[in-house]
Computed example of a mutant assay.
Amino acid sequence: MDLRLDGLSVVTDGRSLVRDLSLNVASGRVVGLVGPNGSGKSTALRCVYRALRPSSGTVWVGEEDLSRLTVRRSAQVIAAMTQDGAVDLDFTVEEVIALGRTPHLQGNQALSPRERELCERAMDRLDIRHLARRGVLTLSGGERQRVLLARALVQEPEILVLDEPTNHLDVRHQVELLSLLRGSGLTVLVVLHDLNLAAAACDRIGVLREGRLVTAGTPGDVLTPELVHEVFGVKASIVSHPLTGDPQLLYSLNPSP
């Protein structure tokens, strides 16, 4: 299912956080949003998972205006893994993951055998089966990130929205998570701070600055030394990954222009 942001703007207290943002995420593709802190990335994502109502513009889910969908229907179609997705009650890991089925259940309906199998498969995919009976408040930040992604996958969405999903993860689990996204077949919109990870994981990248889209395209087209210096204020050389050919950035610690 395609996802399209069409002229999206968010104004809060007279301040423009996102300005006329238009971006397409084709069905089954992974699109990354990158940009400096405060550039509007997370705000744009909040409009997609309906934590914020845009001041103007439309989020299109396939051919449907997201604002016209019921909350239940949008939760069946879109799953989100957010920066502030904290779990304040000490549920067990398997209980938290099972919450991903909530949009598909009626009232206190019990999970079916198929749904329990979905939860178990998600735990296996995220390497957290051994944590199933642990309370989430006892987990490390990285373990909790994987639990929240498992919950999102159990939701069986067509669109997956993730805000800095690699935070707190060690290198192995960063690579595994991004590999999972690439092979999921889902339409994915993800905010990443690490430009090298974005280049490796994303089919396309959109660069934001001060709420506006600077450019969008393939990693090879977008991640140039000139753009990185202009948007992020750092010097970088771009090389090709010896195995994949993906662009990779080598940063200079010399602050001179």
Rank of each mutant, 00 (worst) to 15 (best):
3 L>F: 03
9 S>G: 12
10 V>M: 14
11 V>E: 14
11 V>H: 06
16 S>Y: 01
17 L>Q: 08
18 V>R: 03
19 R>E: 10
20 D>S: 10
23 L>E: 07
25 V>Q: 00
25 V>P: 07
28 G>E: 04
30 V>N: 05
31 V>K: 01
32 G>A: 08
32 G>V: 02
33 L>S: 03
34 V>C: 03
38 G>W: 12
38 G>A: 14
38 G>K: 15
40 G>F: 03
43 T>W: 12
44 A>H: 01
52 L>T: 13
53 R>D: 06
54 P>N: 09
55 S>I: 10
56 S>Y: 09
60 W>S: 04
61 V>A: 06
62 G>A: 08
62 G>E: 06
65 D>F: 04
67 S>P: 01
70 T>Y: 07
72 R>F: 00
77 V>M: 12
77 V>F: 09
80 A>C: 09
80 A>Y: 05
81 M>P: 00
84 D>F: 15
85 G>H: 11
85 G>L: 10
89 L>E: 08
90 D>M: 00
90 D>I: 00
99 L>I: 12
101 R>C: 11
101 R>I: 14
101 R>H: 12
104 H>T: 01
104 H>N: 00
110 A>H: 12
110 A>E: 15
111 L>N: 06
114 R>F: 12
116 R>I: 10
118 L>H: 13
121 R>D: 09
122 A>L: 04
122 A>I: 06
123 M>F: 07
126 L>M: 14
126 L>E: 02
126 L>Q: 02
129 R>A: 14
131 L>V: 02
132 A>N: 10
132 A>E: 13
132 A>I: 10
133 R>W: 11
135 G>A: 07
135 G>D: 04
136 V>P: 01
137 L>Y: 01
138 T>K: 08
139 L>R: 03
142 G>R: 10
143 E>D: 05
144 R>I: 06
144 R>W: 13
144 R>P: 05
147 V>A: 02
147 V>E: 03
157 P>S: 12
158 E>V: 00
159 I>E: 02
160 L>R: 02
161 V>R: 03
162 L>V: 09
166 T>H: 02
168 H>V: 04
169 L>P: 01
169 L>Q: 05
171 V>D: 10
174 Q>W: 02
174 Q>E: 10
175 V>L: 14
178 L>P: 01
179 S>C: 10
181 L>G: 07
182 R>V: 12
183 G>Y: 06
183 G>M: 04
185 G>C: 01
186 L>R: 11
191 V>K: 05
192 L>P: 02
193 H>M: 07
193 H>V: 09
194 D>C: 03
195 L>V: 02
200 A>E: 15
200 A>K: 14
201 A>H: 05
203 D>R: 08
203 D>F: 07
203 D>N: 13
204 R>L: 13
208 L>V: 05
209 R>I: 04
213 L>E: 05
214 V>T: 05
214 V>A: 09
215 T>G: 00
215 T>E: 09
218 T>G: 11
219 P>C: 11
224 T>P: 13
224 T>G: 09
227 L>K: 04
227 L>E: 04
228 V>K: 00
229 H>M: 08
230 E>R: 15
231 V>Y: 01
231 V>C: 06
233 G>A: 11
236 A>R: 03
237 S>E: 14
237 S>A: 13
237 S>I: 12
241 H>Y: 14
242 P>C: 15
244 T>W: 09
244 T>I: 09
245 G>Q: 14
250 L>P: 00
250 L>V: 15
250 L>I: 15
250 L>H: 10
251 Y>N: 07
254 N>T: 11
256 S>Y: 15
257 P>V: 11
